[in-house]
């Protein structure tokens, strides 16, 4: 073992591990232990219940759609913020982080008020037959809100570092602007877009505060999975809450692994194209 010049290895690592163990690992172990108490039969009963299925479908399906929407609008906003110059650009750029900074409960009541039938936006949408507040569409809107910054912030540094000469080459070879975008730029951005998609998806899937106010929370209709966990807790169904929590946790872990694999892939991609 080589002699260490820098001090504090033992104490810093020991402290970090002890802290993580107490704050993160021990509580998660309690979740696993309580969830396993429900047994296979209990789990199939829980996951087979129509109400659970509806909640999971809304949380996962809504999050998928919201993340997809965020990829499209996030690409557009990121592109505009990086490529074009217009008055107020820096202000709008700072605004992108608002969903990160605004507490979810505040966002929740604001969105709910905004899209209520007499709200600023709701009063225009209602006559068109578009109901947002207290419907699955409201869940979608809240999920778009919380997931939006992930795509833009993942994309911006990559967009800024794109080599312009590739585009110039495509255009000087006679490519139309849209051809350059879809055949040259988009393929280069694909790994980054996928990462942003996964991050926005993970966030929206577990989101609670900003969704529950606008959702209306009707069972089988607009009730999200995290709310169902809270309901089970309030009915003292600890095993059920733990099992549903564990299922959702495993889903987001799968996503986390996917993100890190994608990041590795996009890193290699960047090296190869350099």
């Amino acid at each position: 073992m080589r002699h260490r010049v820098l001090p504090g290895f033992g104490i810093s690592l020991g402290y970090a591990l002890a802290y993580l163990g107490l704050i993160v690992l021990l509580p998660l172990a309690a979740l696993g232990w309580k969830a396993s108490g429900i047994g296979i039969a209990g789990l199939t009963h829980l996951l087979g219940a129509p109400r659970t299925l509806a909640a999971l479908r809304l949380s996962i399906g809504g999050a998928l759609l919201a993340a997809l929407f965020n990829v499209v609008i996030g690409l557009l906003v990121g592109w505009v913020l990086v490529r074009y110059r217009f008055p107020g650009r820096r202000l709008f750029d700072a605004l992108v982080d608002l969903p990160f900074a605004l507490p979810t409960a505040v966002a929740g009541i604001a969105l709910s008020t905004l899209y209520a039938p007499n709200g600023w936006l709701g009063q225009w949408l209602e006559p068109l037959g578009i109901k947002v507040a207290y419907t699955p569409l409201g869940v979608f809107v809240a999920m778009v809100f919380v997931g939006f910054p992930f795509v833009v912030r993942t994309l911006q540094p990559v967009l800024a570092s794109l080599e312009r000469d590739v585009e110039e080459a495509a255009e000087s070879l006679g490519a139309q602007r849209w051809q350059t975008f879809f055949r040259v730029i988009l393929p280069m951005l694909a790994p980054t877009l996928l990462t942003g998609f996964a991050l926005a998806l993970a966030r929206a899937m577990g989101e609670y505060g900003s969704v529950i106010f606008i959702a209306g929370n009707l069972p089988m209709h607009s009730e999200i999975a995290p709310l169902l966990i809270v309901q089970k807790l309030e009915q003292f169904d600890y095993a059920g809450a733990a099992a549903l929590g564990a299922v959702m946790l495993l889903l987001s872990f799968a996503l986390l692994v996917m993100v890190s694999l994608l990041q590795r892939w996009s890193g290699r991609w960047a090296e190869r194209t350099r």
Binding site: P27, E207, P226
Partner: peptide, 25 residues
């Protein structure tokens, strides 16, 4: 260790509270 540090970001807020109820409730 790096993955563990990032882990709380990928956990639903409700689950972050739930785990403590299961531990200390």
């Amino acid at each position: 260790l790096g993955a563990l540090i990032d882990l709380p970001f990928s956990v639903s807020p409700v689950i972050s509270g739930l785990v403590y109820v299961l531990l200390f409730g």
